[in-house]
């Protein structure tokens, strides 16, 4: 197939959607026109929701495919684990289809929600809280590394933590006002340029997409 279908049209599609959605956002004219513009904007967003949902389904297939390939490789140790992943995935999908077919909201489908509440929620919460261990070891290493900026980061971190607790107040009452000062002055000031920079990076990246200069998302160069 020609390069037009392979590269040019997808790039143009991206450029056009970007320009159109920007125009839809900024234009007003009058109330009824704005309502129409919002409708079109919402339509494009809805399209992307449907596309993303389809992508997640393809993702699920891709994961299953990966684990099937591991089983096919006959890596003895991995086979039971891959089987568990595939079986659980398939079971969830069956219950999801069952919910759709019977018109039950998916999260209230008893089996689907059982798996969610008893397998996913505790593991998910455990992963979130595992960070407590990681933060401790990361902080310990930074103290040993003696890299001045990172050390400053850590000292401020300790001050703010002490300022947040009654223990800190008991050691020195000044920790609380110091923490408040850090939060309102340097903390607010330090993040502002980062936010500005990210906005600028976004604008210029958008520009490159419009000008068809940003092509990494297409993968290979043909």
């Amino acid at each position: 197939m020609s390069v037009v279908w392979r590269r040019t049209i997808p790039q143009l599609l991206v450029a056009i959607i970007l320009v159109v959605m920007t125009a839809l956002y900024f234009l007003y004219i009058d109330k009824t026109t704005k309502a129409t513009l919002n409708y079109w904007d919402g339509l494009l967003i809805n399209y992307s929701i449907v596309i993303a949902a389809m992508a997640a389904i393809v993702g699920g297939v891709d994961l299953a495919r990966y684990h099937v390939s591991l089983i096919m490789k006959r890596e003895r140790e991995q086979i039971p684990f891959s089987l568990i992943t595939i079986i659980l995935e398939v079971v969830c999908v069956i219950f999801a289809f069952y919910a759709l077919a019977t018109g039950v909201p998916i999260l209230t489908q008893p089996q689907f929600s059982w798996i969610y509440l008893n397998l996913q929620v505790p593991t998910s919460s455990a992963m979130y809280s595992i960070l407590v261990f990681y933060v401790a070891s990361a902080a310990y290493r930074t103290f040993r590394a003696r890299n001045p900026p990172a050390l400053l980061l850590l000292i401020v971190g300790v001050i703010v933590m002490l300022g947040n607790t009654s223990l800190g107040f008991a050691i020195w009452p000044g920790f609380t006002p110091l923490k408040d000062w850090i939060m309102t002055v340097p903390n607010a000031a330090g993040y502002r340029p980062i936010v500005i920079g990210v906005g600028l990076g976004t604008i210029i990246l958008g520009l490159r997409l419009i000008l068809r200069k940003e092509v990494t998302w297409m993968g290979r160069r043909d």
């Binding site: 596309i51 993303a52 992508a55 993702g59 990494t216 297409m218 993968g219 290979r220």
Partner: peptide
């Protein structure tokens, strides 16, 4: 990132092939 599956596969492939 499910939408990026194809892109990532292709980018990696392109890296080795190029």
């Amino acid at each position: 990132v499910p939408e990026a599956i194809a892109s990532i596969d292709e980018i990696v492939r392109d890296g080795y092939f190029s």
